[in-house]
């Protein structure tokens, strides 16, 4: 009997609402370019999904340098949402992405609710786009620059606008820079989001004490990497027990063990971010590691461990 159960590979398919993935391991937006950058180093067909660098309606040049700085077990970035813009994305980046064998999720960002809606509407018509992930950590220019993702009503309004503009699956990516992330998640859940992903980077800062200047030209930036994993895990757990929609865990995941923690905490899938930079093989290693863990546990399916955290002593 034992040999029978271990011989059958565990079921790895997961669903984020209407979006069906072959496995729960995705690459996170902003850490995997437009896929082609990693095509010589990673078997893209093995990814559950590839989330592309955030796209805005118009190209954005990004922030002045320096844009990145390493910190203890992590890094700060202030890239400034540099991207090629919607038109070049569709014409220059999608042709490769269509052929790469992975599910393609397009991360979108805007300065206004209208921009999010236009992006969603236009991407709906693009062949090969399997879903949208909405970055709501951007400032709302029309509301004094307050980030959409810090006010539940604004996050809800973006969610409704995007859902009304597309029939693609919609994942809302949550900012951790809030007092109550579960309240944010509840607001987007009630507004029709198909899934939530979290966390985006934590706002941080580093100073060069010799020059007495900030290490980033932008002064502050987003912290990512293993340093943020415990915070991300806590937030994923809080959100997963609050919302009815699937949760995608992000934050400092670099090994299969990290990913399994997020799955146990209630995430239906995970995104690999900063680890792609220091170990491009991370996503594939994590997928293999999760499968091995399931086999060792005698589990026949990934669903046997999603949310199965035992909180009773």
């Amino acid at each position: 009997m034992d040999t029978l159960t271990t011989a059958v590979p565990p079921e790895m398919k997961i669903s984020l609402g209407p979006l069906h993935l072959a496995n729960p391991v995705m690459t996170a937006s902003g850490t995997f370019g437009y896929g082609a950058e990693f095509s010589n180093l990673v078997d893209l067909q093995r990814l559950g999904a590839l989330v592309v660098k955030g796209i805005s309606l118009e190209p954005r040049p990004g922030n002045p340098p320096p844009r990145v700085v390493e910190t203890a077990c992590g890094m700060l970035n202030a890239i400034g949402l540099e991207n090629v813009g919607l038109d070049r994305f569709i014409h220059q980046k999608m042709p490769f992405l269509r052929t790469c064998g992975s599910r393609i999720i397009v991360n979108i960002l805007g300065d206004s609710i209208d921009e999010y809606a236009i992006l969603a509407e236009k991407l709906t018509l693009v062949t090969g786009v399997d879903g949208l992930e909405v970055n709501i950590s951007c400032p709302n220019v029309k509301k004094g620059g307050v980030a959409f993702g810090t006010v539940p009503e604004m996050a809800a309004a973006v969610t409704r606008a995007v859902k009304n503009a597309t029939d693609l699956p919609v994942i809302i990516k949550l900012s951790p820079n809030v007092t109550d992330i579960a309240a944010m998640a509840k607001a987007v859940d009630e507004s029709g989001a198909d899934a939530v992903s979290l966390i985006n980077t934590l706002i941080g800062m580093a100073i060069d004490i010799h020059s007495q200047k900030p290490k980033l030209a932008n002064i502050i930036g987003g912290l990512s990497g293993p340093a943020i994993k415990p915070v991300a895990l806590r937030m994923v757990w809080q959100v997963a027990r609050t919302v009815s929609i699937p949760v995608v865990g992000i934050g400092g995941i670099g090994t299969a063990e990290d990913a399994i923690e997020f799955l146990l905490a209630g995430a239906s899938a995970v995104q690999i971010g900063t680890a792609n930079f220091y170990n491009p093989a991370a996503a594939e290693q994590i997928l293999t590691g999760i499968e091995a863990y399931l086999s060792r546990q005698g589990a026949s399916s990934i669903h046997d461990i999603i949310g199965s955290l035992r909180t009773t002593i």
């Binding site: 990693f38 180093l41 990145v68 970035n77 890239i79 540099e82």
Partner: peptide, 23 residues
């Protein structure tokens, strides 16, 4: 040279000021 996280064109961190007000 510049600080860079990936070297692959993904992190977009290793920016310099190019001619013509470009990055």
């Amino acid at each position: 040279e510049a600080h860079m996280a990936c070297g692959l064109g993904a992190c977009l961190g290793c920016t310099i000021h190019g001619a013509g007000n470009t990055y």
